[in-house]
Structures are given as C-alpha cells and as structure tokens.
Write a protein that binds this DNA or RNA. Structure first.
Lengths: 189, 189
DNA sequence: GAATTAATAGCACGATCGTTCGTTCGATCG
DNA sequence: CGATCGAACGAACGATCGTGCTATTAATTC
C-alpha cells in the first residue's frame, strides 16, 4: 500500500466519525484537516472535490458497518440463526457507538433524503442493501413477511439510536430487543 | 397582532419547511431572506441571532405538529381510542409530508443529537413530550408496557419516513400500520 | 398632516467555505 | 551523485456565512 493510500485511509477513518457528529455537509475540509494536523490543500488533493470526499466517506462507513455487523455473522448458517446474529450485532454496535457521533446512517439518511445526487444514491444503496440482506435471511428462516420484518428491525434500531443519543434513554435498546424477540419465530438460543 | 408578528409568523412558516429540507444548520439567513424576498438584515432583526431563529423554528414545527396530530384527537376519549387516533394522524401526516422536506423531527434529531445547547434541548423536549403523550394514552388503555409501545410507534413512524424519503418505498407506511395493529389491543372500529 | 415610532433595507466587517495555483520537501531510481 | 516524481504545504481566490451598524421607508399617534 502506497503512502497516499495510507494517508487516504487515515483521513476517511476520521471523516466517518466527524461526519457522524457533524453531518456530511458539516464535514468541513478545513476542520478535517486541522483535526488531522494537515494542510487543507494537502488533504483536498486526495479527493478532487468535496462531493468525492463525501462519497468516499459513505463508502468507508459502509465498510466499517460491514466489518462490525455483517462479517462476524458470515459463519452462521443462513436463516434464523444468522438473522438473530445480525440483530444482536446491529443493536450492539448502535449501543456501543460504532461511529463517534451516533449512527452514521441515521444522520446521513435524514440529511440527504432531499438532496438528489450520487451521495444520496450511495446512502440509499447502503441502507437498502442492509434491509434486503435482513429480508433475505428472514425469508430463509421461513418468516411470512420477510421485508416487513426487515423494515421493523431497521426502524427499531434507528429508534433506539435516537432514544439513546437525543433523549439519553438507554432503555430504547431493551425495548427494541424485546419487540424483535416478540416478532421472531421462537428463536434457537 | 402587529405587523411584526405577522411577518415573523410568515418567516417561521417558511423556515420550518426549509429546515426540514436543509437541516437547522443549512437553514441559512441569506437563503431564507432571498426566498421570502426580504433583506437579510430585515429578516435578521426579528431574531437576535441564528440560534434564536433555530429555537423559534423548532417551536413553530412543534406547533404545526400539534395542530396536525394532537389537536384533532383531543375530542376522542382518552385511552385506546385516542391512541389509535394519534397513530393514524401520525402516520398520515408523515405520509402526506406535513413538512416540505420530510419529517422535521427526524432531521433535527439526527442533526442535533450531538450538539449540546438549547436547540438540542428544545428538540429533545418536543420529541420526548410526544412519546410521553403516546405512553400516557397507552397506559390509560391498559397496555402492559406503555412506554415500550410508545417507543415502537415512534420508531416505526421514523422508519416509514426514511423508507419513503430515502428509498422511495411507500410500503413502509403499510408495514408500520400493520406492526402497530398487531401490537395494539384488539382495536375498536 | 406633522411627529414619532416601528419595520425594513443597504452596506460592511471578519470568518470560513470549497477550490486552485505554484512551490517545497522527501523519497525513489538511473 | 543528480534527476524525477508524488505528496504535502502556504497563500490566495470568490462566495457565503452570521452579525453588527446606519439610513430609509412604512405605520401609528396626536
């Protein structure tokens, strides 16, 4: 890996956290550079434009989410078990704050759902893929309405995130887990 | 009502929509003024600072939400009926886009959950009050876990909003309604 | 209708935004 | 060693941000 690639990765690592706190628009090149003790122009050279930086940040966030939630469950058999694994990992990472400023996707979704363009498409792609993967496992588990279950799991996760971050109420996670358990087919441990 | 009050109201009417699209930070005084064909300073004079404008906008959004969701249900008897009314109104207004840029509260929550200060407190106050009111009616209806039900209703609404706005998938609302009906005690009418 | 007050406009400020340019430093290679 | 090249820097650009001032218009009161 060349030096440029290493620097770029370090930038994006920081950028995902900063964007989760300040939003993808609040993700300022000047601020990002100063926090990384780099010059604005030196940092900017790694990306041709702010939009490219945003796109790369979304990609990096998707990568981090994949490694924290999806990857550890790939060894589980498809269907109910992997679905359960997803749910546990999903809520755990939300609770443990995988991103410094709360769920990156909740912030990015709300911020860009009205701004057409490639950034919005990338966010929608990642969120949609996650829900489809949930639905795929639900279908393999024989659930009657897989997409509906995937929707509910996603919504409860976002709700728990809001409860924690905005209302300082950690009980949202217990409530989300309870609602999911109630909904799942009697789970195997 | 003096002229100033009327102008202020018109500004805030527009500001809530603009903020729902661009966020409370993206709610720029210059842009707001130009869209209203006012001078920046003329508009600014109605609020002492941008933070005051944001606070007033949050207040105006709360007022709009109250009139669209809470007010029409005040004639219903407390308990299950009013709770059902709330749910219908809540999802209907989300679906019909009470705010031009999707749910104001979803956007504001995600944007400010990491920024301590009076604006965040105002948002948290409004969101918390809505959930507590839902829980109050659930308790009056004899639900076993009123706060848990209120949490689920809120989360499903936000999820449906995201599905509609980000994923262009209107089915989120049907799924939210179905999940709520499944959860409610056999509803009257 | 004149005087007074309230509401809006015009202008300027420092700061910061994204972006571009020319330069310098450090490593790599012949 | 000297030549080359990629990475980072520093300065500057036009634009826009929030926020003060001062003037000018509009509304209200006598």
């Amino acid at each position: 890996m060349g030096k440029a690639q290493a620097t770029r990765s370090a930038i994006l690592e920081h950028a995902t956290d900063l964007a989760s706190r300040e939003g993808l628009e609040g993700l300022t090149i000047g601020r990002l550079a100063s926090e990384l003790k780099m010059s604005k122009s030196g940092l900017f050279a790694h990306f041709g434009s702010k939009q490219d930086l945003q796109m790369a940040t979304v990609e990096a966030a998707a990568q981090r989410f994949y490694e924290a939630v999806l990857a550890p469950c790939q060894s589980l058999p498809e269907g109910g078990e992997r679905l359960c694994g997803y749910c546990e990992r999903y809520l755990d990472t939300l609770q443990q704050e995988l991103f410094a400023g709360g769920c990156f996707w909740a912030a990015a979704s709300a911020e860009f759902d009205d701004k057409p363009g490639p950034v919005r498409d990338a966010i929608a792609g990642a969120v949609g893929a996650w829900q489809r993967e949930l639905a795929r496992q639900a279908a393999a588990a024989g659930v009657e309405d897989p997409a509906g279950l995937a929707f509910e799991i996603y919504a409860l996760g976002i709700g728990a995130n809001t409860a924690l971050r905005l209302l300082n109420d950690e009980r949202g996670f217990a409530r989300a887990r309870q609602a999911i358990e109630r909904r799942l087919p009697s789970p195997a441990a």
